[in-house]
Amino acid sequence: MDTLIKELKEEIINELNLEDLTPDDIDADAALFGDGLGLDSIDALSLIVILEKKYGLKIGNPDDGKEIFRSIRSIAEFIKANKK
């Protein structure tokens, strides 16, 4: 799990151009949107692209997105549970 979380952090930093951050700066349990990392709706689209491109996963029910993208850990858990 820790390896996947680190990999996700690196992927997000790279794809979202979070140049000033290192993986260690991101708390795996902190909120991605709003007060935490401060991501927005455009970033949400990028996260969907990362999930599909890198892990071959689609979010079947859009209503699940809010919970899946709550934090880095929740994304990692979704990947672990669904990756074949």
Binding site: E15, N17, I42, L45, S46, V49, E52, K53
Partner: peptide, 9 residues
Amino acid sequence: NEEKLLNPT
């Protein structure tokens, strides 16, 4: 990406 999965930014 063969016209799929494009980063929107």
